[in-house]
Design a protein around this nucleic acid. Sequence first.
DNA 1: GCGACAG
DNA 2: ATCTTGTCGC
Length: 224
Amino acid sequence: MKIAPLHPWNLDYASARRLQTDLAAKVRQEPFPGPVNTVVGVDCAFSRDKKRIAAVVVVLRLPDFELIERADCVLPVTFPYIPGLLSYREAPVCLAAIEKLKTTPDVFLIDGQGIAHPRRLGLASHLGLFLGRPTIGCAKSRLIGDYDDPPAARGSSSPLKDGEEIIGTVLRTKTAVKPLFISPGHLCRLDDALRITLACCTRYRLPEPARLAHHLVTRLKAKL
DNA sequence: GCGACAG
DNA sequence: ATCTTGTCGC
């Protein structure tokens, strides 16, 4: 799919933060245009010497989770890991891999935060602006926000709040297992994000697209 | 100064 | 993210 380059990625930290604040104003939370037939999973891994980063993207069809298409890309690492600036480290490879897809998926499940971010522009939201397609942030841990531990049953949840503002949901995707932190990326609302994420979780903590992408990128990493 | 901190 | 053995539990 075609991706219009919104801006360069090689910025200094101060510029990177300012850009996030500017871009966050463009993020929109809207109800889904139509049905969700295809869901994407993306995951990254690093070479052993930590000099290269790899990304794998998979497109699964619902409701049977059949693999429709996959693509990958490997690039040199150009930005350090800094909490709050993850996009500048991982977005470039993700976009390069996604750009190789022939199909245009209905929604993207991203391993990271959506608007549950200090400046409301986590990796999922940032990627969403480049893709112009709905994205959902599915993080395995918290970046910001306060919450109460949700009940142990699968499907239980509790709001993730930054002061009085609800920025996401802490969702139990598997009974008695550590929850996931869900937040809207772009062109998606929290209720739809929850519904779609849960629909992709079968018997494991992570959504199927994310699990498959993680499995494949780990296999790719071994060959670097 | 101290603690927190997506992947 | 990455390193890394055994171990507890369904």
